[in-house]
Structure formats: C-alpha cells, structure tokens
C-alpha cells in the first residue's frame, strides 16, 4: 500500500472542488469502512505502531552509526503511508495526526541536513510519543464507537446545514490545515484555508456580525492574512498550530452566539 503525493493531492483537490464530500474522505489514500469498525482492528493497529517504532528506530540507528550517506530518508514517509493506522487516526483525532507528520519530517530534515544525532533522537522520541498517543486516541474512539457515542465516519456526500454544524466543520477543517502543513503539503493546506473561508465561514459571518462584529473581523483576518501568510512564509508547524488553536477559541464563541441567535429566530411561515 503506497501512495504518492501527486495522486493524493489530486484526490483532495477533486474532493474540495466537488465541495460536497465529508472531510474524512480527504485522508491519505482511500478511507475504507474500516474506520467505522475500529475495535475489530485494534490488534492490527498496535502491531503497526510497534512496526513503525522499529522501522524509524532502525533508520535513526543507521544514521547514528553510518552517517546520512547510508540512509534513504524517503523511506520515512513511506513507512507511515504503508500502515492502515494513519487513516484511523486521521479520521478520529487530526491534531495528533499533524504531530506525527511534524515529527517524521523533523527526523527527515535532521538527517538530510546532517544534524547532530541528539537532535534526530529528540524528533524520534517525539514521534514515538505521538504514535502511542494516537493509538490511545484510537482505542478510546473504538470504545465510544461500540457504545454508539460517536458519529459514523461519512464516506458519502454530506454538508453541514445549521450554523453550529458549520462551525464544527470549520474547526475540523482547520485541524486538517495543520495536518496537511505538517505533511509539507503547503499548497493543499493553503487551498484548504481558502476553501474553508469561502465555502463555510462566509455562510455564517453575516449572522455573526450582528452579535460580535469584531470577532468576525478578527476571524476574517485570520482566514485571509494571518494563517495563509504563516503557511506561505513556512513559519513552522508549531506556529501554524498556535494560530489555528487561537481561531478555534474564537470559533467556539461564534458557535455559542450563533446557537443563541437561532433559538430566537422567527418562523418562516
């Protein structure tokens, strides 16, 4: 199971152009219904995490012992793309998905740049922590799934129809932005910011202006200036994540305001 970046980029672009696919369908490669039956695959996922630990550890060991000439860092990307676990975590808890990519590229760039082994080991440790944290999140999601407490991951067309649903969708998309940026798909991340603004935020900002115009203006600046510029200037995953987290806080307030406004809305007929 290998995926090159080009087809994945095309798949994402098509999904966004259609504008009607649910976000989970934007994961690396094909999202199968497996993500709706997590508990049946927890054993596989655990094995995959251990396998990944071994693979990344071996690459870093080779770098430590034999230098960068003996290491093919493209493998670091391929390992992660080999496993089914990536779609499980991408559909359940995107923030950790971004951290995994951040650490993988941390190792890769460290090796490619000939960094001291301690720097590379530090990134390897971050990757291990992120992988195990991700496995924990998937196990928790599996429990919730069995209890019917989480929505089924949608692989068919679906769009949010109420303002609070739109806000939730925006927040999910922004997590994706960090993930795609961490994956070094800068153009995809930028397009996702732009499309989220046009396809989602513009639909709710009108109602929001009446309740907190400064909040809307603030978010408009975040969407159109702060976040895309941070990505364009390659400010780093932590900086982009900080911007997104600040936006999430503002969006939580927006959701509360919009939900209250909807309660007071008059009837059509």
């Amino acid at each position: 199971m290998t995926f090159t970046k080009a087809p994945r980029y095309i798949a994402l672009a098509v999904a966004l152009a259609a504008g009607s696919m649910s976000l989970p369908a934007l994961a690396n490669g094909e999202i199968t219904d497996q993500v709706n039956h997590l508990s049946e695959h927890l054993g596989d996922y655990s094995q995959e995490v251990k396998w990944l630990e071994g693979k990344y550890g071996a690459v870093v060991d080779t770098y430590a012992n034999e230098g960068k000439g003996k290491v093919d860092t493209a493998q670091l990307i391929e390992f992660w793309e080999e496993v089914n676990f990536h779609s499980a975590i991408e559909t359940q808890y995107v923030p950790i998905y971004a951290s995994i990519w951040q650490a993988i590229y941390g190792i890769k760039q460290g090796i490619d740049g000939g960094a001291d082994i301690s720097v590379v080991r530090e990134q390897e440790q971050k990757l291990k922590e992120a992988l195990w944290q991700a496995l924990g999140a998937v196990k928790l999601a599996a429990q919730y799934q069995k209890q019917g407490l989480v929505d089924k991951v949608r692989t068919t067309e679906s769009e949010p129809t109420t303002a609070p649903e739109v806000v939730d969708d925006i927040k999910n998309r922004l997590h994706k932005v960090v993930a795609k940026y961490a994956e070094q798909l800068t153009e995809v991340a930028t397009t996702l910011v732009h499309d989220t603004y046009l396809q989602r935020f513009e639909g709710i900002e009108g109602a929001l202006i009446e309740h907190d115009a400064e909040l809307v203006e603030d978010l408009e600046k975040d969407f159109n200036v702060t976040l895309p510029q941070a990505i364009e200037k390659d400010a780093g995953v932590d900086a982009v994540r900080d911007i997104v987290e600040a936006m999430q806080t503002k969006l939580d307030r927006a959701k509360t305001l919009l939900a209250d406004a909807e309660k007071n809305r008059k009837d059509v007929f």
Binding site: G19, S20, E159, T162, V166, G203, I204, D267
Partner: peptide
C-alpha cells in the same frame, strides 16, 4: 450554499407545510 442556514430554514418550512413533498437536496 446560502446564508448561514437561513435557506435551509426556508426549505424546512416548505417541507413541513407540504408533507406530501419528497424534497431531496444536494448541496455544494
């Protein structure tokens, strides 16, 4: 896509007023 769910409110009201209407909506 319309104005923050207000078009949806209109469609829901039309549907509610016309229970024998089977309205399927594709959004984008």
């Amino acid at each position: 896509r319309g104005e923050g769910g207000l078009y949806e409110n209109v469609l829901e009201a039309i549907q509610k007023r016309n229970p024998k209407l089977n309205l399927r909506i594709r959004r984008g």
